[in-house]
Amino acid sequence: MNEASLWESLGQVSASETGQVFRDFLRGHVREMICEVIATR
């Protein structure tokens, strides 16, 4: 999920689901970052 799709997703969910969508977004980016760090070692 990129930033544009994050905003699109947030616009489609209820206020109670916003936190979950944002956490999923952050989790995905953290995973990508960890994979990049491991790959450069």
Rank of each mutant, 00 (worst) to 15 (best):
Met1Ile: 04
Met1Lys: 08
Met1Asn: 02
Asn2Thr: 02
Glu3Cys: 01
Glu3Leu: 15
Glu3His: 12
Ser5Tyr: 07
Ser5Glu: 13
Leu6Gly: 04
Leu6Glu: 02
Leu6Trp: 13
Leu6Arg: 10
Leu6Tyr: 12
Trp7Thr: 06
Glu8Thr: 11
Ser9Pro: 02
Leu10Phe: 05
Leu10Ile: 04
Gln12Cys: 09
Val13Lys: 11
Ser14Pro: 08
Ser14Gln: 11
Ala15Trp: 12
Glu17Asp: 12
Thr18Cys: 11
Thr18Glu: 10
Gly19Phe: 06
Gly19Arg: 11
Gly19Cys: 01
Gln20Ala: 14
Gln20Trp: 13
Gln20Asp: 07
Val21Asp: 03
Val21Lys: 10
Phe22Pro: 03
Arg23Val: 02
Arg23Ala: 05
Arg23Glu: 00
Asp24Thr: 07
Asp24Lys: 09
Phe25Cys: 00
Leu26Trp: 09
Arg27Cys: 04
Arg27Ile: 02
Arg27Gln: 04
Arg27His: 11
Arg27Lys: 15
Gly28Lys: 07
Gly28Asp: 00
His29Glu: 03
His29Val: 03
Val30Asp: 02
Glu32Tyr: 05
Met33Cys: 06
Ile34Glu: 12
Ile34Leu: 15
Cys35Ile: 09
Cys35Ala: 15
Glu36Arg: 15
Val37His: 12
Val37Lys: 14
Val37Gln: 10
Ile38Val: 15
Ile38Glu: 15
Ala39Trp: 14
Ala39Tyr: 13
Thr40Glu: 11
Arg41Asn: 10
Arg41Ile: 02
